[in-house]
Design a protein around this nucleic acid. Structure first.
Lengths: 249, 249
DNA sequence: CCAAAAGTGTTGTTTATACACCCATGT
DNA sequence: ACATGGGTGTATAAACAACACTTTTGG
């Protein structure tokens, strides 16, 4: 009735919580990797992450590992997908609950510690040769990020509390990898009603000062889509049939 | 180096793969529940699911448990979310990789077996008192289903290979809980270009026969949204700055 | 006064909504 | 002949895409 090992042969899978942390640096989308200290995959670049502690929450494990290995904290974190294909970890059956996180491009001190021998921000193109199936996790996270850009307010997570519309536009352009029209972008983003002027401006160079904006409801990432099929609540008199009760068969 | 128990005290969490199976029955969205045979929560209704077998894939476990406990197979399955809050299972730390599945409303033989003492299709309103945190999983699955309806082709998974536009409209109406305008619905769905006429018709009653349609690319559930911010690929001459290489800091 | 980024409006096109009648069949 | 569900078009409104110049500042 007692067990003392984490070696293969254990009938329960190993569960880890891992994070893909994105930021925008030097006008480019980058993500945070650690160089692994130990086997398996010692010396290779990998996502920050760790096995779950007893009774630890999944998000908590991701944030704890992130802080311990890279020194990064205070990120916006969301669960991404759970990876569990047999063979993905040489130690045996291993389930990775992957998360993704976004941090403002501001100054962030990185500090490699714990399992991390080194830490760094990498561009997408440099992340094809990672430990485990982490390249696949990165690809999934990136796809999710791009998709969510258009119908949610995640983009704001890359910016500090106050920002200019040009900065916001640059976030979209960097992630979407295409230039956007300034006027149309402004109309579009303001129509979502997710941000408001602070009333202040920022002066930064020999040009007209930029108005500062803030997120209206800073707590949360919200859905800002407006689409639906079909239109019109049907024939005037008609009513949706809500049928009988009880499980069937 | 050997272990022979599944009892608490194990330092690794228990991992289960569970499924929320939706179908449309009697004009209503319903989901498949089993009555648990054993503790914990013996006698209560719960989602089909089971602990992972050694080296078993997550999807495979969900499909295996579904077939074993309910007799249902051949479903469209997608991973939903992973639930792992401490305390969600009285046996100790337990991670549930939840999936959701869609099946056509056709005749499906249910057959309770294994952990399932009984099986049945239940309406949403009847699923508030489930074992574990399964009510929360159901709520998450339902929200995902509703959201995906509008921007993907999942709705087709509720229908057999050939179907009429009225049947398809009924799927949308049932899930969205509102009636839709027939003409607008048809314009909308045909504009997505995801379905095509088979050339055949179905005669069912004393009325005009209905044209049959099929999904163009039956393999996959696709994204059919068309939205983007900003418009216009920027000032003509301008080029996106793609900056320097190498990890920073 | 020059360079640099901020800011701003109009027009054409596409997509969504509202709405009502005729058609083909079985009984 | 009638009841039943299948099938169709048009006009208005809203959202999106294309496009270029003026403003404010610092140096």
């Amino acid at each position: 009735m007692l067990t003392m090992h984490t070696a293969p042969g254990n009938e329960r899978p190993l569960v880890t919580s891992d994070v893909v942390v994105f930021t925008i640096r030097d006008g480019e989308l980058r993500l945070l990797l650690i160089k692994r200290r130990h086997e398996p995959h010692g010396g290779r670049w990998a996502l920050p992450g760790d096995t779950l502690l007893p009774d630890e929450d999944l998000e908590h494990a991701a944030l704890r590992a992130l802080a311990a290995q890279t020194g990064v904290s205070g990120v916006y974190l969301e669960q991404l997908y759970t990876f569990g294909k047999p063979g993905r970890d040489p130690r045996g059956q291993a389930i990775s609950v992957a998360h993704y996180a976004l941090v403002p491009s501001e100054q962030l001190r990185l500090r490699a510690a714990g399992e991390a021998a080194a830490v760094g921000w990498f561009a997408r193109e440099q992340t094809s040769d990672l430990a485990f199936d982490h390249a696949e996790i990165v690809a999934t996270a990136h796809a999710r990020l791009v998709a969510k850009l258009d119908y949610s307010t995640i983009a704001f997570q890359f910016l500090p509390a106050e920002f200019t519309l040009s900065e916001l536009q640059r976030v979209y352009e960097t992630i979407r990898q295409e230039a956007l029209d300034k006027r149309n972008f402004r109309k579009w983003i303001l129509a979502r009603r997710a941000i408001e002027e602070t009333g202040e401006v920022r002066r930064d160079g020999s040009h007209r000062p930029a108005r500062l904006y803030r997120v209206k409801y800073p707590g949360r990432v919200e859905i800002i889509r407006h689409e639906r099929p079909g239109g019109t609540r049907g024939q005037p008199g008609r009513e949706m049939a809500l049928h009988e009760r009880g499980p069937s068969q």
